[in-house]
Design a binder for these strands. Structure first.
Lengths: 188, 188
DNA sequence: AACATATCATCCGAAACAGATCATTGTCAA
DNA sequence: TTGACAATGATCTGTTTCGGATGATATGTT
């Protein structure tokens, strides 16, 4: 049965979440996504209804529908599903990330830097706060390192972004000018 | 005529590039995209044939096709097009960027950190180099600040990313552990 | 019961996507 | 000069994805 369809990142998100949580409904998945990977991989919730159906067709999950009421569908990872997920996990990914930043686009095309910076600064600060709160929460508990580490990279990105917009918003503070960034101190 | 269609980020990229360059063919646009915004906003080249057609339908650009040979279509920004673009430019964007990082996804789900890091480190280093080369090139010439600034944010992101993966690849160097990132070291 | 408000599930048209394919032009060797 | 082949440029096509709209159930309140 298995293997008729092409597995996309969305597929692996579903498979991965199912492997963490056990059987779940699309709505459960939606909750999980917004709580976890949604921060760095957004997708419309309708996908979380469509995708498991696709996966079921190909045998990566099984589908059990309630007979009455909301007729929820409960999805369970199958062995082939778990295998496919694990194989994906252990496969190299030389690809780079894809960034889509509306603000950057406007900056590029010459939008007013001050205004742009003010707004961006505020929202990014907010998000940075959220992330850091979340991080301190996670620091307490034990568990796999993955979620914490990915959060840490998110925090670093946000921090750089905040710094950047802050410099644009208040030019000539601290670092006198937004000069050509040179090579990195450590990390060599 | 104007205003029948919804303008998407892709639309604004086309309008914006046309406003920089003057009349251009889809192929010209494709070249411009890969040279500029492509770095932080990728799109399939076929869109650069489809999108101008859409825009022409709604009156934001005009279309002139060669009578023979390749029958190129030359697109020119109209006044409504320029207006729409300028309005977009001067509109606030509280939205955050959208990041889609396959490596981060795998990290989250528990992939082997060492392998992941080694590969990512290499590709990100390469990209960082490209960006820095480009930046020194741009530093020489005059022109609007937007392109240079957006490149600078790109460089910062890449640098953080390189640092992050480097730490994962060689744990216990310099920074003893990948500890909860606290306030930013430099550049703050 | 009647109503308001969450919660949950599905649908749908419009775009985006990725890539294949097709058509023109340039080039160089026979 | 022609014919082969590569490079360039344009278009087409089938699938997914997007992002709401819509509608149905459940829960709580009076």
């Amino acid at each position: 049965m298995t293997g008729e369809i092409e597995l996309t990142p969305t597929s692996y998100i579903v498979l991965g979440l199912l492997s963490f949580s056990g059987p779940a409904t699309p709505y459960d998945l939606k909750q999980m996504v917004t709580a976890t990977v949604g921060h760095f991989w957004s997708l419309p919730h309708s996908q979380l209804y469509a995708e498991p159906t696709r996966l079921a067709r190909a045998g990566y999950v099984t589908e059990n529908q309630e007979k009455s009421g909301r007729r929820r569908k409960l999805y369970t990872l199958t062995e082939p599903g778990r295998d496919a997920f694990n194989e994906w996990l252990s496969t190299l990914t030389p690809e780079l990330y894809m960034l889509r930043d509306l603000a950057l686009l406007k900056l590029f095309f010459g939008a007013d830097i001050g205004e742009l910076a003010a707004v961006q600064l505020e929202t990014h600060r907010k998000r940075l706060d959220e992330y850091e709160t979340l991080h301190t929460l996670m620091a307490g508990q034990k568990g796999p390192a993955g979620p914490r580490l990915s959060l840490e990279l998110g925090i670093r990105h946000e921090r750089e972004t905040v710094n950047f917009w802050a410099e644009q918003a208040h030019p000539g503070k601290k670092k006198p000018a937004p000069r050509p960034p040179r090579a990195s101190p450590r990390s060599g």
